[in-house]
Amino acid sequence: MTELGFGLQGESLRSFAYLLATVAFVLGIKWQGRPETARRGNLLSALGMLLALLATLIGAGLQLGWILLGLLLGGALGAWLALRVEMTRMPEMVALFNGSGGLASLLVASAEFLREARPTPMLSVLAMLGVLIGGLTFSGSLVAWGKLSERLPSRSLALPGQQVLNLLLLGLVLLGLILGLILPAGPALLLVLGGFCCSHCCWAWAWYCRLGEEICLW
């Protein structure tokens, strides 16, 4: 984080804020396990998130304009959706929010990967895992959303030759991972990453169409 221009003191203050946020999350989940304290738990957890966000924003060296725009757009849309959805439509809304979290992970991993001219193998593997898991969360949640809102049939959806297709897509994902590790930096990496995203999103789609019903049951 030194490249962001944080002094040692600012850095440790920020770490301390993250530590407090972690405690808030853990206690928040704990409280959410009992009906008497559940609402307080959710509030505490939300305050922890606010603290972590502020600690990150206040750090010097960040260009805030676009960040604030993103926060505003995402937050407003989230609030609007959350407050107007009917109670019976809650589960599919949760699926949609979960999916947007997955999308965020995918985008962060891609951004970190593309930033480096020569990513280390460690960064490559972590970025690929981030893209894979985030993408699976995203496409899987979309299918769950489709099924819960009855936009997709809730029965198990399978294509003919599904298992062969799954294997093929898994192969593409592994190929993307290997290529991402050995290819030099530059546009080639972008292509690999793009192909990687597409292939594993198809894979996730195919996979979750089969597992859709289990996913719906959470």
Binding site: L71, G74, G75, S105
Partner: peptide
């Protein structure tokens, strides 16, 4: 990613 994550956070807590 900021927009997608804040959708997740704000919507999720509400």
């Amino acid at each position: 990613a900021v927009a997608a994550a804040s959708l997740n956070v704000v919507g999720g807590y509400l």
